[in-house]
Design a protein around this nucleic acid. Structure first.
Lengths: 257, 257
DNA sequence: TATTATGCAGTTGTATGATGACTTTCGAAA
DNA sequence: TTTCGAAAGTCATCATACAACTGCATAATA
């Protein structure tokens, strides 16, 4: 059997344990269980997630491998102490103000540039496929005139994941939630974000990154990611100004009524 | 029940899966199974190691999490194509804590590289002076044969501060507290860290960074910081190995008594 | 009373068997 | 030769049981 282009879009069904890992990780990063605190028992998690204990155990093992939790036989599974001192504090301090958002975006830039370089070196086949998958998904959504935000996020997340350093993913999760501008509901972004030209440009930049990573060229990958993100920064700034102008106008309009 | 000195070093009884992970990882890194090749089935491994499938599966999951192998349902478990030796080799005998520390250090690397570049562009006179000040302080302490750790930290902190992005400083503080190896009480670090030659090397690298920032050359500053930190990573890895050797020796000494 | 020993309930670690889902192989049929 | 499908091999998941360990309450002891 030959390999077609479609095969590259590996739509590999995620393992149950991966779903559980994602869910628990999200909760932990959100600080729903304080560090040092005990997680629900495997039995309880079995009920809440509706899967067998095997799956729960595999998920917890993965989280333990990432250093997020520690299991103590006879006692329970506990959230690692350091995790939230690293990321919780950070998340707590970040207000949603714009000046902050720009600064956060800048930190994210640092993280992602290095991610791209490491991904080029360390990625495995599945991880590379995941990046490609996100790329094609973006393409598909673009052709279907649907919001591409999720695919964009997935693309960057897949790259972070390909570093094989879980902290990069976590950083991106924490930072990205605030910094990624994909607010399709707001009036100032619909025009900009959803314009085909805008998204085509994004996709062109994505392609350069993807090629560099596939080629295993760390230097090129970093450079491609740098130009992509600095341009995104620029676009974000422009959008902020557009929004301010919009508000100014609506205020003026309201006052004249 | 009191905790004796021995308790501190003994660590807990290793799980069976950890033993299996270590064994398989050793074989993989020794190249006994070529990349892309299929591993023995879970059933065979069960017999080989004399443990249950549960344990084998947990071990394989751990290896997959580290990116060493990939499981394909219905086909088998395969060795990853690109076993990054640098990454894998050290992960081989490393506890989870060390692995986490290295990952955090890697994130810090991303942050600091970008800091250097931004500092080169955005620094003001006072900030540049602060960086120089830290540099000279390092020099002074070195000549006086005093611990240079604080000055080193101050140097990096001053650079982060010169980005005029408070988050860089905050990130550095949070990450640095965990990742900076300044364990002067431990026997394996005193020799290495405090050697004049070692610190002279640091200072040479610092100088390159300082010059690049003063010249306003962002690209050069990033590059200088990158080499500085990657070398630091390397030194840190070597120190981990030295520590392992130390423990191995002390264990051997203890067993011959 | 104060301290130690004991037992119990809860939790994680491991073993075992069964079933579903998926991949590969290989032979039969067109 | 090519195509199709059946069957074997393999991983994924479930369910159950028992062993090992922890924390805590209670009883036994000095």
């Amino acid at each position: 059997m030959s390999q077609t282009v479609a095969d590259l879009r590996v739509e590999r069904k995620p393992k149950l344990s991966e779903t559980v890992v994602a869910a628990i990780r999200k909760q932990l990063l959100a600080g729903e269980v304080p560090p040092g605190q005990k997680l629900p028992t495997e039995g309880q998690l079995t009920e809440t997630f509706g899967v067998s204990r095997t799956v729960i155990r595999e998920a917890l093992a993965k989280l333990a491998a990432d250093g997020l939790v520690e299991a103590r036989q006879g006692a329970g599974v506990f959230v690692s102490e350091h995790i939230s001192t690293t990321f919780g504090v950070l998340a707590a301090d970040m207000g949603a103000k714009d000046s902050v958002a720009l600064n956060v975006l800048e930190v994210r830039l640092a993280i992602e540039i290095e991610s791209a370089g490491l991904a080029a070196i360390r990625r495995n086949a599945a991880q590379e496929a995941a990046i490609q998958e996100a790329f094609f998904e973006f393409e598909r959504l673009l052709l279907a005139s649907q919001p591409t935000g999720p695919a964009d996020l997935a693309f960057h997340r897949a790259i972070a994941s390909a570093t094989n350093n879980p902290f990069y993913v976590e950083m991106l999760d924490v930072l990205g939630r605030r910094a990624i501008p994909c607010d399709v509901t707001s009036p100032w972004s619909t025009e900009l974000v959803q314009s085909d030209e805008y998204q085509r440009g994004l996709q062109r930049e994505h392609l350069v990154i993807l090629n560099a990573i596939s080629a295993g060229d760390a230097e090129a990958a970093r450079e491609a990611m740098r130009t992509h993100l600095t341009r995104s920064q620029q676009r974000y700034r422009e959008r902020l100004q557009a929004r301010q102008a919009y508000y100014a106008n609506s205020l003026k309009a309201a006052s004249t009524e």
